[in-house]
Amino acid sequence: MVEQEVTIENKLGLHLRAAAVFIETANKFPCQVFLRKAGQEKINAKSIMGIMTLGAACGSRVTVLTDGENEIEALEKLAALIRNRFGEKE
């Protein structure tokens, strides 16, 4: 299992559309993917409902965790996606 902490930088936070984009990327990898917000339990990040329960607004710190086949590549891709604001303008 590998992990990396990133900050949610897009203005709208981890909202429904961003969550969908995140899952689409996560589903490309066979490994398990989780997200964790400080002080909370980790959630299955291949579940849109799970991501929405995080309530990660702009400025939140979240940890991406990947476990299994291709975990390192998956972690890099997913962390980069968050840093790139899920492809949103702001």
Binding site: L16, R17, A19, A20, I23, E24, N44, K46, S47, I48, M49, G50
Partner: peptide, 14 residues
Amino acid sequence: EIFNAYLHVLQDPL
């Protein structure tokens, strides 16, 4: 695009 999110809800294990 928002409806992609709706489709993910329909596949959601939770």
